[in-house]
Amino acid sequence: MSFQDVKPLLKVEELSHYYGQQLGCRDINFELYPGEVLAIVGESGSGKSTLLNCLSTQINPTMGKAYYRFADGRVENLYEMSEADQRTLLRTDWGFVHQHPRDGLRMGVSAGANVGERLMALGHRHYDNLRSTAIDWLSRVEIDADRVDDAPRTFSGGMQQRLQIARNLVTNPRLVFMDEPTGGLDVSVQARLLDLIRKLVSDLGLSIIIVTHDLAVARLLSHRIMVMKGGEVIEQGLTDQVLDDPHQAYTQLLVSSILQVGT
């Protein structure tokens, strides 16, 4: 099958969001295909987080549509679904990796329970299976099995972030949203996390929408990039093309502002 026959997982049309009179994001149009990693870059206030929150149905946008294709081929406008259905989607078919692990983890319960919780929400009840699945996922994100009963508050920042990824991926989601997933981490810890994400994405064939202000993260992980400024997408395309041959003044400024490390 040629890639041209593949239907989009998500199709966003004329999406805009205002906070009262204040513009969040305006007239966003794009398609995301299975297995694609899309990076949304821009500085604080560019509207990238507003867009991510609209796409993940945490905000219902002021205008516009986002059609999602379910595993069974059914296509629905996310904003016409009931809140209950939106929540189910977010807990099963989707994942959301927050910048701060405390927003995505339950810090007081064990690592194993953090991973098992989403499975239980899907109706899995068998304790031994839940535990072995949790341990399997901990090892996939490079956390020792003997930490399974420890609470994430005893983990380092990098480990917490890896745990958050495990918690999200355990239900085999088809689409994962990531909001600055490497944001608060030391550079060496960042590299390890990025490498892990890169590997999981290619092994699992996930679709990812990742918001980052770090162009190096976008270059390493994404196939396509959208550059946002003042609530609008000002440039988009193949990641290396946008970063190597930026056309808009703002994108050129962003690209010229990063330190050249290697090539």
Partner: peptide, 9 residues
């Protein structure tokens, strides 16, 4: 070469 490979448009 970069135009052909698509690094440049």
């Amino acid at each position: 070469l970069k135009l052909i490979y698509g690094n440049y448009s």
